[in-house]
Amino acid sequence: MSGMMQVSSARTLPKGLPQLAALLVVLLVNWLVFRDFFAVRLQDGRLFGSLIDVLNRGAPVAILALGMTLVIATRGIDLSVGAVMAIAGATAATLTAQGYPLPAALAAAAGVGLACGLWNGILVAILEIQPFVATLILMVAGRGFAQLIAEGQIITFVSEGFAAIGGGSFLMLPMPVVIALAMLIVTHFVIRYTALGLFIEATGANVRSSAYAGIGTKVVTIAVYMWCSLCAAIAGLIVTADIRGADANNAGLWLELDAILAVVVGGTSLFGGRFSLGLSVVGALIIQAMNTGILLSGFPPEYNLIVKAIVVLAVLLAQTPVLSGLRFIWRAKA
């Protein structure tokens, strides 16, 4: 009676295998529709090619997915990241256009991002509003804020330094890719080389038990929303720098959904608990590889969303225990 209960572990696939396999398949399909997909050359001192595009274009969503992973691990959700991107972009672009030095503009954008996260965190942790509803407020109101800052126009700026965040390169890699990598590493270290990761997972898996064990679950929750919004602000800076203008109406529009999708495709459960930053980034790359593939294929744009939905469905199905179970039975019969 006091021993282990019977649990079959033979059925679960090794962690991360479905995601990596899916990424590989999507890349292969891209290669089939466009034979130069893997061709990479040097253009003006930076790598240039479709594969690089996948990384470069996938960077903002990958950065969003980092923060979103942590929020989802606490059993929350953050719908406001797209709006926070727009706010941060509009803030930095406006300040730059008004002649403030770049560091000041970037710091202001980051500060605004953190403030947005604090707001979300307080609504969720202190006022105990459901995360979906709590962050919906900023999702709707935030874009309005961004429009107020930008006064309804696309704020363009002339600043090679700022533009470099989107269009520059470092060690031949596009700057957004470098920033995403740096954010992945920083987030990983902050989470795994402190006890924060454990606290986040514990809070997400059982908030009551965690609080009873003496964890400051409210502080953990607020910290996580702040990190998520900071990630959103950074992603917002990238897309703003990329087009050398802050488009309050469209910057980050619907990207919260891509970020959530990336996290889910990466295998983190919406019910909180265990999470993987790396696999969320892989999820973001799968989504972007699909987008790029569709563009390269010459497929009519009307099919874009359908193709995307089918691939996502396939990846998610590959992760469900039900299907894994079926596969197990099928293999046993064979």
Binding site: E201, A202, A205, N206, S209, I215
Partner: peptide, 17 residues
């Protein structure tokens, strides 16, 4: 519901407090 964090390992549960 108030004691264990079922998803986490025995080690993590023991060192949690």
């Amino acid at each position: 519901t108030e004691g264990i964090v079922a998803e986490l390992s025995i080690r993590e549960n023991i060192i949690l407090a």
